[in-house]
Simulated scan of single mutants.
Amino acid sequence: MNSVSAMWWSFRSAVGTILILLATAAALIISAVAYGAARWKSRKIICELADAMQEFVRTQKVPELPEKYAKIQKQMEQIQQMERHSRELAQTEAQRKNDLVTYLAHDLKTPLASVVGYLCLLDEAPDMPEAQKEKYTGIALQKAYRLDDLINEFFDITRFNLQTIELQKVRFDLAMLLRQLADEFYPMLAQKGITAAVQVPETLTLTGDPDKLARVFNNILKNAAAYSYENSEICMTAEKEDNHIVVSVISHGEVIPLQKLDMIFEKFYRLDSSRSTHTGGAGLGLAIAKKIVTAHGGKIHAESSEEQTAFIVELPR
């Protein structure tokens, strides 16, 4: 009995081992088949999506995808909309730039002709009365300044896309900078009876690039001066708010329509569609201001209502 039992247990053990091996082999085969099927299905999906993407890139049209790819199709439609919007913006910007170059080229002739004309009069009449000489010299000088402004605008147009903002940050007195700018603008503002008030706490300091930030507030003030009512006031304020310093430049003039408040910070956009030889610019001042403020990690926006416009600059302390 012992030998028979031993043989029986050996037989059972052998059968069990064989069954385990067969089960393992079957599992491996099933796994391999499932893996192959999944891989084939994945390749099929990838090929379908690759073909769809190639068609999208080639035709710029979103192909009709099966329902299971609805999310991907929606994303492709969003990409198409973004691409179309970017293309339209680029075309609009290019048209604005071309128009401005044409306008500025035309506007250069007017002050240049005046400078040449008045200098010729002075040269041809050496015995001209002193009062008349002074008048003609003053007009020629004024037109020469305007000519210089227009040439600088040409340089701004050509430099803007190539310029990389490099900041030289130091700790500086923001209150002093704003007061100096107000003083520099006095002659320009006085011509229209405009005054500039600066309401800034003493020794308000900020870490940033003072030269670049001076250009920001210079451009904002220049814009405010151009569009303010005569005999009005431009008020500049600055205060600490949490981790920011908020500078506001408030002027009084015609309300800027809501739909134009964001557009005024776009390149080559001019709020006044009519070309003014005296106040018209290249439409880069506020765009440059925004680029500098953004480089400082700050924000700039405009608000306008009830004949009052405020440009608000937030800069990290």
Rank of each mutant, 00 (worst) to 15 (best):
S228E: 02
V255I: 15
A225W: 01
T59L: 07
E239V: 11
A14E: 08
R159Y: 06
L22C: 15
A224D: 01
D127N: 07
I79A: 09
I30M: 09
D148L: 08
V313G: 08
I157M: 11
Q91D: 03
I312G: 00
L167T: 12
Y118P: 05
R43N: 04
Q142Y: 07
A302N: 01
I245S: 06
I79P: 00
K192G: 04
H301W: 13
K71V: 13
Q191D: 04
S251V: 02
R43S: 10
A50H: 11
R12F: 12
K267I: 02
Q78S: 13
L167W: 14
A282V: 06
A14S: 14
Q73D: 03
Q180H: 08
I292L: 10
A32T: 15
Q60N: 07
A105G: 15
I46R: 13
T277H: 12
S232A: 12
T205H: 14
L119Q: 08
V4H: 14
R179A: 07
Y227G: 00
D99M: 06
T24E: 14
F154K: 00
L258K: 13
R12N: 07
E303T: 11
T92Q: 02
F185M: 05
V255A: 03
I292R: 00
E266M: 07
Q73I: 07
E241L: 15
D211P: 02
A25G: 14
P126T: 06
F154P: 02
P201C: 10
I151F: 05
A295P: 09
T164L: 03
H106T: 14
V170N: 05
R159V: 02
D211A: 13
